[in-house]
Design a protein around this nucleic acid. Structure first.
Ligand SMILES: [Mn+2]
Ligand SMILES: [Mn+2]
Ligand SMILES: [Zn+2]
Ligand SMILES: [Zn+2]
Lengths: 154, 154
DNA sequence: AATGTAAATGTAACTCATTTGCATTTGCTC
DNA sequence: GAGCAAATGCAAATGAGTTACATTTACATT
């Protein structure tokens, strides 16, 4: 809120993010956080490794990293029907994802109405007392992939 | 629609389910379908094997089974944040699941409002054209587990 | 700035879910 | 009942993710 968004502001944010949770600041961790920040989309461990070009440490290190980050609320794990989990930074704006099943394009969206949904479910359910989290993903086709379609007539 | 729901009605339904998709009717397949029908909840491959007590064939067979069933629209794979997929029969009533993160209790719910949600997302999105599917799961605590809680004050 | 300690890392080995190759059996069509 | 593709069983392979353990590093304390 004080300085302009120049230079290594994000590095400072990452430092803060880590120290706040009492995690040590290491080169590898800063790189992974930076990769995620600039990618602006959920990434798998292997995508992180590739994007970091060796600067993120080894495979095991990145696995340990994402696990501890998820445990401490820095990252969220999302299931986009790939055969693995993808990870993204938890930001101030909660959101979900819509995925193109043809090309893999991912877009965020907000306004899922989960509050209403949870309330309705709890009202009807005899067994459940509380909803803590929700997972919502949409799967469809993007404009370019829909164009290249055989023919979804009707 | 003609006979009452006695005896082996479900076996007939399973036979129909299979032959309609040009899948051969085997003992193992009938057993798996029956297990799922009576369990009324999503089950993992290993739960299926256990519940079937040897009558479902070997592990590999059940894996192949659920894969072909999912491919042909007999089963749906659901992700309940276990470390594997669970499978459930696709019925006439589309629904989602709410899971107790303490004890694993699973309950179905309907009325997720995904139609509205999809419409809203498509209206806002520049990239997406069509929504085909959606995954929604709620995670919370059931009454008995909420009771045994340390103290969720406030 | 040197030191101590717990946390983080690297390497290799391991676990566990799921898949694949191949030989054998079985359901179904004619 | 014969013939053939589909289904099965078994063993081996694959691949994601974890664990053990020795080594290094961050960082608090002096
Ligand atoms: Mn996102
Ligand atoms: Mn269900
Ligand atoms: Zn696309
Ligand atoms: Zn419970």
């Amino acid at each position: 809120m004080r300085q302009a968004r120049h230079a290594s502001t994000t590095a400072q944010e990452s430092r803060a993010l880590l120290t706040k949770r009492r995690l040590k600041v290491t080169k590898a961790r800063l790189v992974v956080l930076d990769v995620l920040r600039s990618a602006r989309r959920p990434m798998s461990v292997h995508e992180l490794l590739k994007a970091a070009r060796g600067r993120a440490g080894g495979t095991v290190t990145v696995y340990r990293m994402v696990n501890s980050f998820v445990a401490r609320g820095i990252l969220r794990a999302v299931n986009l029907r790939h055969d693995h989990l993808d990870y993204e930074l938890i930001g101030p704006t909660d959101h979900h994802h819509i995925v193109c099943v043809k090309c893999g394009l991912i877009e965020d969206f907000t306004g899922c109405g989960a509050g209403r949904m949870a309330a309705a479910v709890l009202k009807k359910s005899r067994s459940f007392k509380l909803v803590r989290e929700h997972a919502i993903e949409l799967f469809g086709t993007c404009r370019s992939c829909a164009g290249a379609e055989p023919s979804s007539k009707k």
